[in-house]
Design a protein around this nucleic acid. Structure first.
Lengths: 264, 264
DNA sequence: AACACGAGTTCCATAATATGGAACATATTC
DNA sequence: GAATATGTTCCATATTATGGAACTCGTGTT
């Protein structure tokens, strides 16, 4: 009881704050709530982030890190989302030879929790643990189109092709709903194309999203269409494994407008 | 990248080891895998435990702590087990005035993740974060009776009334299945009586258990029967909220024997 | 444009803090 | 009952985390 390590106590109290607060707290909030010195809070958070225990937003809002969210989704009632998706991911990997990712929604961003590497020499690095905005990633759009996720705040212009206008985004999402898969063509990073599809849980919510991503050079229009159909099908198969039983095609009234906006 | 806190890096690597390994690692395994000095590992683990980041078995096996399991179950696809159970717990609290707990299975033990305190002066302390063996607790028995949980190793004799014989335990579990609730009468701690009932998820597995617990003095035979019926009903209601749709009464063939035994 | 302000990070001297070896408990085995 | 295996506590040591201040970066204001 008395034999405690100070830095760990402090780090743990920060973690507790982040895990228990509903909305992702900001650096300043954390600093003030815990009563730690600025520099100390900064260092502790950096360390926690490096160790994947917390994840940080582009706006310096903190949420649970990949190590924890990954654990959350590899255990518990839905009995191993990662394991359930393994087979489909391997099939996609064989068919496309590109990088395959499984991602979940954390806060207002999308976090990769599992990956199969590209078979090409020029493939993307390991994304596990990486968080990306919803509006300019394929997985993110899958959540936006089919789930109750909403964009909050300004839509960042990551590249020249990023969609930063809500009306334009909504138009794009309509296409996503129609064909069952989402596309991000150089919207997150120049030269990077990704195709994403949703995975529905038993209760009808989007619990995760699959993606195939690789260099735009290799993923031309025709290839994208083929992969799109493929990934949508695999996502749908996993959804069925998870107990999702909706009749395909009759996607009924997914809310198109923002349901809630972050405590502004 | 270079500005890291050593103790946190080390603690994080321990955490990673625990969260990522399927079977709960032992102290020695952790120490050897991480390459830390014995004393250091011991202190770090003690600190992590004090901060509820890891939980330790009676056999010194480590698993994810309440802070993390609590997070896992307050988020994700089943959309807040704790919130879903709140109403039922409050009702039980009003009716019984005793301590009400919500527990989940972690490894081979049962961990409390939510509690409403007793209204009496002599009530039990805050159990949130506490792990107890399955075979001598009411919640534990609920998991054993209705879920695919299994006892592993020796059954510890916590009190004179603890059931330490597997045949005797199985007989008790049969009663539990028949009436829909479990009883632990001074089996965990002398003078402590608890009544537990299972909560089923949409897929038919037991995802959590409810309990009412208090001094044996206040919980006499009649009262136990009344509370048993009450708590079984509330558990069943929550199950329905979670999407469980089994026909009540026809509990079909819950596996009665141990399904799997820990990697021995 | 220039300025002031807010939010975070990095630097650095300081000492407080975590460290690891060894001694000390506590089970388990032969 | 000795011997081994597994963890915990102690304690001197210097390594390591700490917090104030300086610095950087971004944003809004006149």
């Amino acid at each position: 009881m008395g034999s405690n390590i100070q830095s760990i106590n402090r780090a743990a109290s920060i973690l507790a704050l982040i895990l228990e607060s509903e909305n992702s707290p900001s650096f300043t909030q954390i600093m003030e709530t815990t009563g730690l010195a600025r520099s100390t809070a900064s260092r502790l958070l950096a360390s926690l982030e490096d160790n994947h225990l917390v994840a940080r937003n582009e706006e310096n809002l903190y949420s649970a890190g990949p190590m924890i969210t990954r654990f959350s989704h590899s255990t518990g009632p839905e009995e191993d989302l990662i394991a359930q998706s393994q087979e489909a991911m391997e099939l996609l990997s064989q068919e496309t030879r590109e990088a395959i990712n499984l991602a979940i929604l954390v806060g207002d961003e999308v976090q990769q929790i599992s990956q199969l590497d590209s078979k090409y020499l020029m493939g993307n690095v390991n994304w596990v643990g990486l968080s990306v905005p919803t509006h300019c990633s394929a997985v993110g759009k899958a959540f936006l189109a089919f789930g109750n996720a909403a964009t909050t705040g300004r839509l960042k212009k990551r590249t020249a092709k990023s969609i930063t206008n809500r009306a334009a985004l909504e138009k794009d999402l309509k296409k996503v709903r129609a064909r069952g898969w989402a596309l991000s063509d150089s919207e997150l990073e120049v030269g990077l194309t990704a195709i994403g599809a949703p995975i529905f849980g038993a209760d009808g919510h989007v619990v995760a999203a699959l993606s195939v991503s690789g260099p735009t050079m290799r993923l031309n229009k025709d290839r994208v269409e083929v992969i799109g159909a493929l990934i949508a099908r695999q996502g749908s198969l996993i959804s069925q494994q998870l107990g999702y039983t909706a009749q395909h095609g009759t996607v009924k009234e997914h809310s198109t407008s923002d349901r809630k906006v972050g405590a502004a």
